[in-house]
Nucleic acid binder design. Sequence first.
DNA 1: GTGAAAGCGCTAACAC
DNA 2: GTGTTAGCGCTTTCAC
Lengths: 355, 355
Amino acid sequence: MSQTPIAARGRATIYDIAKQAGLSAATVSAVLNGNREKRRISSETAKRIEQIAATLKYSVNRQASGLRKSRSGLIGMLIPNHDTYFFSSTSQAFERMARERNLCPIVVSTLRDPKLEVETTKTLISYQIEYLIVTGATDRDGVSKVCQQHGVGHLNLDLPGTKAPSIISDHFWGAQALTEELLRLCKPQKMPDRDKLYFIGGIATDFATQRRIAGFTAAIQKSTAGAISADQIDTHGYEAENAAFAITKLYESLGGLPKGLFINSTMPLEGIAQFLRTLDPAELAGCTFGCFDWEPLATFLGFPLLMVRQDVDGLLRKAFELIDTNQLKTNHVFEIKPSLVIPLSVGGAQKVNMA
Amino acid sequence: MSQTPIAARGRATIYDIAKQAGLSAATVSAVLNGNREKRRISSETAKRIEQIAATLKYSVNRQASGLRKSRSGLIGMLIPNHDTYFFSSTSQAFERMARERNLCPIVVSTLRDPKLEVETTKTLISYQIEYLIVTGATDRDGVSKVCQQHGVGHLNLDLPGTKAPSIISDHFWGAQALTEELLRLCKPQKMPDRDKLYFIGGIATDFATQRRIAGFTAAIQKSTAGAISADQIDTHGYEAENAAFAITKLYESLGGLPKGLFINSTMPLEGIAQFLRTLDPAELAGCTFGCFDWEPLATFLGFPLLMVRQDVDGLLRKAFELIDTNQLKTNHVFEIKPSLVIPLSVGGAQKVNMA
DNA sequence: GTGAAAGCGCTAACAC
DNA sequence: GTGTTAGCGCTTTCAC
């Protein structure tokens, strides 16, 4: 079989090598996979085969070997989008850890579209991916169902599901720590309504937002401030424009900035920053700002900003730990603590970490 | 063949469907690939097959079909890293356009490491990718060599190579436009050394930096300013720290900020922003800032900033045009014009586009 | 130490 | 309109 000359097909196969070496394909295969010991192939033979493989520019066809072995060496990850720092750094860490395990990473973004999530999952499964990490998806359980039907090990990251293990940030802890720090650092205001912390951004029904509000509320209730009122929380979406609108309204109704602001994620932060640029820099000094989420440039906005930085490496380390130890059949939720990043200009220490 | 029951293997095959339908695998295959017309399969038969496929949760094995068809349906892209806005938006556009063509996108980052670039290329080729887009790689020609040895169509993006077509931003035009705008908007300074534009960031031997310096220089020489001196250009790397150091030194030696600053890319921008925060806000008003490269939050730094935004969509549109029309054998270089983004607080118009 | 042969799941040429 | 068959390139059992 495979008598066609190489040139006609473009790619050399193990049969081409076998023929040139006067050996069988089985021997060539064993050498090229490092299975020499099992077959006790002499190192000369091995060397000769490797030599020929090199001159023929042989490259294994993983479609063929994968088909035969029923293993693809592929691992997939779904993310909402690439162009947000949290997700792009997630891709970066995912890739590194996949490579450490000799798996080829495939990252695909599905734009938080439930249909696209399920479709993409099916596509990845048709390529025989061995595992799937489902990050920030909308229809997590739908994706789980498809994976289960095809026996693909998978887990949720960032947002929890009910049909697979989930690894998420400890939003409650992070929000509470950030709020406590805001309370500690902010300057008291005369006017009662301005002498409060306000929460801006996110969606009230959204899991992460809920947990963050819970942490925010808990910290305030634990403090001398005591009570918290509904008008301290504005969850009109993640879009920058909505946050800009919210802060504008708040500023107008309070007659100035409040003593502190809890900004829920970097998108709303953009809207807030946009508004703050219209203010006199002196005004900003009266307000202490905190943001749940981190990105490099945010450190250098016109005002000091406390940030909660999710532990991307920790999240993925846990994910691969579950994969490595075959713990993909549960639906446990693992919470990973983020860290609180405090700029020098505010705190004194650059970073205050974990509890 | 394939008499093993489904349950034993986990995944249903076309033989399982064929058996249940009392038909042959060939018929099933034709139906499931939409090749009914060629075989003139009755719509009832087709419907029945699809029905059975659905109940068995059949999913095609693309390792097998790809092996048979010598087509994988995979398209690869190499990028330096995910967590930089330019590259992550490149991934985003790449994915969208790949999907439009029914290709499954695989994006892998290779950290500007020449060895990893070549190794990763070989891995992707072993998975039989049909095309490769090589973005911002260090050893572009090395990657080209490997692709050519295996007959894989590919092209360079962002940085040009000599062995494949290249699609790059028109750095010269962008830098020139940015510089002209800086010259137009900046306020004259008394001290001669401060009455100049300075260029900070990048590496002198780097292609993009060279072209940007050329555009910067051309704009200045065309202006009334005339001459340009070597000390106006500081190319001590892309790292934020280097830029912070450079601006600190410059500030000290000039006794203040110059009238304008050309910041080469967002990493150096970070260092500059870091330094600027140590200054009195009033001082910033005396300097006009421009950055070659764009990212969302940069718009809201403490100072007005002109930016050159690369046309990511345009770059990838051109790339896929070459792929679609099979023009991958040349080594032409295509330059795509970026756009100049001018904040309202500076220009009046939000955006001044293309020449 | 090595070869022959079977078969992973699929598609396509050919047969009827 | 549908079945039979060969074979994509590889790995692996069995045989010697």
